[in-house]
Simulated assay, not measured.
Amino acid sequence: MFLIVEESGPWKVDAVKAGLTHSLADFRIVESRVSSVETEERIRLLVLGLLTKMSRVRPNNSASDGSSVDCEGHVGYEGEGEDVGRVGERRVNMGNKLSSKQKKKRKEKVASSLQIRNDFLTGRSLTTEREKCYDPRDRTLTFVNGDDDLDFLCEDFKSLRAKMSCGHAVTPMSLTNWCRRLLDQGECRFVCGQTDCHVEWPFEEVCKMALLTKEEMEYFEKTLFRNVAQDYLDVKVCPGCKSRVVRADLSELSVECTTCTAAKKRPYMFCWQCLREWRGPAPRSDRCENYGCINQPLETLRNCLHITFNDVRGVTGCPCIRACPTCGLLVEHNKTQCKNIICLRCKVEFCFVCLKLTEECLKSSTHFQACSTGVAPRQTSIPVWQRK
């Protein structure tokens, strides 16, 4: 059984496997509205008549009564400044006909104004990004006094501080920055960044407390899906139709793409290892009969050089690259400090020398001494991650 996952489709993959409470497709974007309190640059553009006919909309931090609240807590209503777009309008008599040069100039001006208007309505700032702030009248939030616990760069955001489910105080900007950093590091869980706080926030809570914009929501969903697929699913791109395919049998290299099979009206198989159309008998777990089809990770393990530790005594003949004994990810030791290493993918700590879990290795050795069982031989197979 194989699953085709379209990159641009509703990313329903299997948030269940990733431990998420909802499918990514369950989240909806609520279109924001632009406040009547605008930057000087936007007001100038309004005066010039470049944004003459524009929907007046409220921002994410707007209240239900039609008012909006800026970072200083000032309240503005939709009726204010309503006629600003008409200021500075003027009629110009262009004569009977325009020259080709004038027509070209006019087209460029119209295109420029349309681009500015589109940028304005899609939330792209003309100068600097406007800081997101909580509405002080939002009774669903618990506001607290004190420091922003996620403002690690001391940016001193102006918004009120609100309490997360873990009890730490955040602002929309600091929470957005922290969660984006987690996603960019390949994480698929949102965990509090405070020391000794390992509380995981639900995605719904992050969306609400970070006041995510439409663009931020799209980025979060795409990156989250990519991280989930990388960590929890065996996903590759079909060489025929470029669909993303999830392999069910991790020991089988011949994989059928149902999309290509339907399009070609014949079974279409491709090799999971060399990512070319399958040649030769199937099933097989070592290689297909395409020229150059090799298991590159295994070749790396077979041919890598030996490592010389700077701080661990009595270790010789240890390969410099190992496959994590838990998930199979190839990892390399940087030669410094102790012999133990934490896998970036599964987060399991193991001994680089004997390949035992750290707890087991330290029963008969120390962090900086040779293992009692000696150096584990070069690995000849890649461990398969048995996720629980």
Rank of each mutant, 00 (worst) to 15 (best):
L51V: 02
S68M: 11
E78N: 10
L150H: 13
F157Q: 08
K109C: 01
L298A: 02
Q337E: 15
C271A: 01
E205M: 04
L150R: 01
G19E: 11
E200P: 04
G186D: 04
A263N: 12
T358I: 08
K104W: 01
L48N: 07
C260D: 10
G9C: 09
G317W: 00
R161E: 07
S23F: 12
S285N: 11
L20Q: 14
P319G: 04
E40H: 01
R276H: 07
S32Y: 09
E31V: 13
K53H: 10
S64V: 15
L212S: 04
I382P: 03
L48G: 05
E277H: 03
K265I: 04
D149P: 02
S23G: 13
A25K: 09
K97G: 01
L20M: 10
T213G: 06
E40P: 05
F352S: 03
L160G: 06
V13W: 09
C192E: 12
V92Y: 03
V5I: 15
E40V: 02
E221V: 11
H306C: 01
E216F: 10
T380E: 11
T128M: 05
C320A: 03
F27T: 08
L357Q: 14
W272H: 13
T380I: 10
C343K: 00
Q379A: 01
H333F: 00
V384G: 00
L183S: 08
L182D: 02
R91T: 03
I382W: 02
E155W: 01
F152A: 14
G9W: 10
G374M: 05
V246W: 07
D149M: 05
S113F: 03
F220G: 13
S99V: 10
N227R: 05
S112Y: 05
E360K: 14
C241H: 01
K104R: 05
Y219T: 07
E6Q: 08
